[in-house]
Simulated assay, not measured.
Amino acid sequence: MSGPAHQHRAVDAPRIQALSIRQPWAELIVAGHKLVENRTWRTRYSGLLVIHAPAAIDKRALAALREAGTVLPDELPTRVFLGVVTLEGIHDERDGCCAPWGEPAVKHWTLTGPQRFAAPAPGIGAQGLFNVPDDVAATVNQLTGAPAAGR
């Protein structure tokens, strides 16, 4: 038989999601120092998560981290995709869990396997989770060997 009812559709690869996180937090995540992200909301998404650094910088946090002796690059890139982690799960804050980065009264997003891109990829972020552009998806695929699609 032939016709529209019997045609096969190509199955899209899973869409890789990204999350915009202000510097210096984005840098600490891709460097593997901060493996929990604090959010007020949950998502059902899990898997590869690209870290995007938007234009805004958390200057108060940057100053506090440097004062505490945290080693950070002199220049923190913004408006770029920095690397990829795996979002393993999300849980409610529990007494002292996820120290030192977990904050009280929020959701803790557990991150593993940070991998920095060889070079930051310029791009615009968005609020919440968003699909990565095709070129960033290709970079993730090369880095992780995982088949994945962009927007």
Rank of each mutant, 00 (worst) to 15 (best):
T110S: 13
A31I: 11
N141I: 02
R60W: 07
W41M: 04
P122R: 06
D74M: 13
A18T: 02
A137H: 02
V84Q: 01
P77R: 08
A18K: 00
I51Q: 07
A126F: 04
G47D: 08
M1A: 10
I16K: 02
P100F: 14
Q17E: 09
A146F: 09
W101H: 15
L49D: 03
F81N: 07
Y45T: 02
I29Y: 00
R15E: 03
L87S: 05
H52C: 03
Q115H: 10
C98I: 09
N131E: 04
L76Y: 09
A121K: 13
G113Y: 10
A63I: 05
V85R: 00
T43L: 08
H52P: 03
H6P: 05
V84I: 08
R22S: 10
A119N: 13
R39K: 06
P120W: 10
P77H: 14
A63M: 14
L143I: 11
V36P: 00
K107G: 04
V36K: 00
P24Q: 08
L111Y: 03
P73S: 05
I16N: 01
A149S: 11
V136G: 01
P77N: 12
T43E: 09
A55Q: 12
D74S: 13
P147N: 12
V36D: 00
I90D: 02
F130K: 06
T139E: 14
D12P: 04
A61F: 11
Q7M: 15
A126S: 13
D134F: 14
H91C: 06
T110E: 14
R44V: 03
I90Q: 06
V136K: 02
R15P: 01
P114H: 03
E27L: 06
G32V: 09
T43N: 11
L82Y: 04
A5H: 14
V30W: 00
G32A: 09
A149H: 09
A10F: 10
Q115T: 15
E37V: 01
N131W: 00
